[in-house]
Simulated assay, not measured.
Amino acid sequence: MIFQNELINWYLINKRDLPWRHTNDAYTIWLSEVILQQTRVEQGLPYFNRFLENFPTVADFASATEAKVLKLWQGLGYYSRGRNMHATAQIVVKDYHGIFPNLHDELIKLKGIGEYTAAAISSFSSGEARAVVDGNVFRVLSRFYGLATPINSPAGKKEFYALANDLLYKEDPALYNQAVMEFGAMQCKPKSPNCSVCPLGQECYAFKHGQVNELPVKIRKAEQKHRHINYFVCFEDEKVLIRERQAGDIWQHLYDFPSVETTKECEWSDSLFIDRVKSVFGNNADFTFIRAKKHILTHQIIHVQFFALKNYIFNFNKQKELNWVSLSNLDELPQPKVIHDFVLEYFYKNKME
């Protein structure tokens, strides 16, 4: 119990004052847990507040349009999380009479809720004795106990989950789970942890053996794929031509501009690139370079170039995803961050200047 007691004592003194820690409402805790996946608290907190303000109940969430959900989600990345949340809210209203489940075995059935999230919600809302294992917990356990099994391997997950459940403080699982997660986030950080003032330092395997920077171990993932997307901006009569992205690729149901994807970065004056553009937008198409951006996703690096396009031809009967919108209407539509940033810089900033 020394490990658990030290963590809980540290937590009671050092914990951050976060709004979802003042409630056992499963819906509110669900919002916080999903928003904070792959997201730092500092970045996720404004989104949590925004979602709770717009959707104070799960019924409010369920009745929203997907476009509104994705617009509120804009900038967080991993947009499938927002779509899954919307689907889950509708399931809760339909199948659970609008009462958000607070037990693991019901939560795990819902879309977008995996083992970690189900354990967290059930632990924090109902006190169910489920160990929560996220990246912070993997790191604390790996360093303290000197575990070198890769945390993203099947054997590693099995080993760490078994240990986490053995260590779980059954008298107050919610308090212990919050403590170990917070300890990993604030004290046992991925880089430059302050080991000299760590209450677990004397017993920590990694600290005693000089392996703090080597643990935990992760199997290296495949290299990120590079993609080159060339966007063509058509602006007429205070309206801009936009496209709703379809299923089967990144940014599903977000809005961007007509584009041509190439296998490498192309100079706008390159003859092959000019021929490719004219084959898409017509032989009289005239385009000029605006700017380039790089957008980094988890598995892809997107190299983006923006061009102003004139004298183009579109077949709106065949390309149903294309539409003209005013800038004010565009602002209401969910966009990939790289598009949103461009719109702010190119349209609004230029207009103000």
Score class of each variant (00 low, 15 high):
62 A>F: 07
25 D>Q: 11
47 Y>D: 00
59 A>K: 15
9 N>W: 04
57 T>R: 12
54 N>I: 00
61 F>Y: 12
78 Y>A: 06
44 G>E: 05
71 K>A: 06
47 Y>N: 02
35 I>S: 02
30 W>R: 12
19 P>K: 10
64 A>Q: 08
70 L>P: 08
20 W>S: 09
12 L>C: 10
69 V>F: 02
41 V>F: 07
59 A>R: 13
31 L>E: 00
12 L>K: 15
14 N>A: 10
46 P>D: 07
36 L>R: 13
36 L>P: 05
62 A>D: 04
20 W>R: 11
28 T>Y: 13
67 A>V: 11
34 V>F: 02
67 A>H: 11
35 I>T: 03
49 N>L: 15
11 Y>C: 08
42 E>W: 03
18 L>M: 14
23 T>N: 05
50 R>N: 15
49 N>S: 13
36 L>E: 04
37 Q>G: 12
65 T>D: 12
28 T>G: 02
63 S>L: 12
63 S>I: 05
45 L>W: 10
25 D>E: 13
20 W>F: 11
41 V>I: 15
15 K>H: 15
24 N>C: 11
12 L>W: 00
47 Y>A: 04
37 Q>M: 13
15 K>E: 05
71 K>E: 05
46 P>K: 10
33 E>Q: 07
15 K>P: 03
76 L>G: 06
15 K>A: 13
12 L>H: 08
67 A>Y: 06
39 T>K: 09
72 L>I: 00
30 W>Q: 11
46 P>W: 08
24 N>M: 09
22 H>W: 07
16 R>F: 00
70 L>I: 06
50 R>G: 06
56 P>C: 12
11 Y>E: 03
57 T>N: 07
64 A>L: 06
9 N>C: 12
77 G>C: 04
32 S>H: 10
70 L>M: 14
77 G>S: 03
32 S>I: 10
18 L>W: 13
17 D>P: 10
40 R>W: 00
10 W>E: 01
23 T>S: 14
78 Y>M: 06
48 F>Q: 09
38 Q>C: 10
54 N>E: 14
24 N>P: 00
20 W>V: 08
52 L>G: 02
66 E>S: 11
34 V>E: 01
22 H>T: 05
19 P>N: 08
49 N>Y: 12
62 A>E: 05
68 K>S: 09
52 L>S: 11
67 A>S: 14
44 G>W: 07
59 A>D: 09
42 E>P: 03
31 L>M: 12
55 F>S: 07
29 I>E: 03
69 V>M: 14
42 E>H: 08
39 T>Y: 06
36 L>T: 14
12 L>S: 02
11 Y>F: 15
51 F>H: 10
73 W>S: 01
32 S>D: 08
45 L>Q: 02
26 A>E: 02
